[in-house]
């Protein structure tokens, strides 16, 4: 056990030598995550708004998307966007396929969260808004969605971390994000344990500040 914990300068030099490639990978991870979050949030909010529609066809479509999207694994969705779409003439780069796949995969979860948030806003808010002469769109934008967002923000920030985690799957459609980089390095020098520990620490270093930051943000921004 002590032998495993013993660290020499040589080790530190080697760890430092991973830094440039891991940094490149980390940048790609961050870019993919942020784009996928934006897409997932946009899809989720739109679907949540649509789920409030009285139209039964729209309701059925939303149900199908939400329920199916929740049970088909992210990996399968990633493979569908990357391997199946080229058969229909849509060739996506790994980055694009990753963003779309992760965004679409997390849309249903975000939609469910937002639906709960929207339903937690009392009906009276709609009535008050109409008394003030707000249009429907304005009521959504200025009254309902801000309150819904405040109510669901903690759950939503959990999904931000989940999206970070899900991007690791994109290493299998040859996107050179941080996990792919670590796997490549490990395949060269067989130091799997070391590299995966470093990647684990990187993911933690992404997740912990993000969740702390989002908590801070919500306590500042949602004080009303």
């Amino acid at each position: 056990m002590m032998a495993l914990l013993a660290i020499s300068f040589k080790d530190i030099d080697r760890w430092w030598s991973y830094a440039p490639t891991l940094w490149e990978g980390l940048q790609i991870t961050l870019k993919v995550s942020i784009c996928a979050m934006a897409l997932g949030l946009a899809i989720g909010i739109c679907v949540a708004i649509l789920s409030q529609s009285k139209n039964r066809v729209i309701g059925a479509l939303v149900h199908v998307y939400v329920q199916i999207g929740r049970v088909v694994p992210e990996l399968v969705q990633v493979f569908i966007w990357y391997y199946v779409l080229p058969d229909y003439g849509v060739v996506l780069t790994p980055f694009m396929a990753g963003v779309v796949a992760i965004g679409v995969a997390f849309g249903p979860f975000v939609a469910e969260v937002f639906r709960a948030g929207i339903e937690s806003v009392p009906r009276s808010q709609w009535e008050v808004a109409s008394v003030f002469g707000y249009s429907r769109a304005r009521t959504w934008y200025r009254v309902v969605l801000p309150q819904a967002t405040r109510n669901v923000f903690p759950v939503l920030s959990g999904y931000v971390i989940s999206i970070f985690k899900a991007t690791s799957l994109l290493s299998f459609i040859s996107l050179r994000e941080v996990f792919a980089v670590a796997r490549n390095e490990a395949a060269l020098n067989f130091r799997y344990f070391e590299l995966f520990t470093i990647v684990m620490l990187i993911y933690l270093a992404l997740a912990i500040p993000t969740s702390v930051g989002l908590k801070q943000f919500s306590s500042r921004y949602f004080r009303w």
Binding site: I161, K165, L169, Y192, F193, F196, M200, Y203, S211
Partner: peptide, 22 residues
């Protein structure tokens, strides 16, 4: 907390490729 904020894939690789070193 550490498990919950890191991907399943990474844990799988830990167990499959990492643990044989021990």
């Amino acid at each position: 907390d550490a498990i919950r904020s890191t991907p399943l894939l990474l844990h799988l690789f830990f167990v499959f490729f990492g643990l044989p070193l021990w």
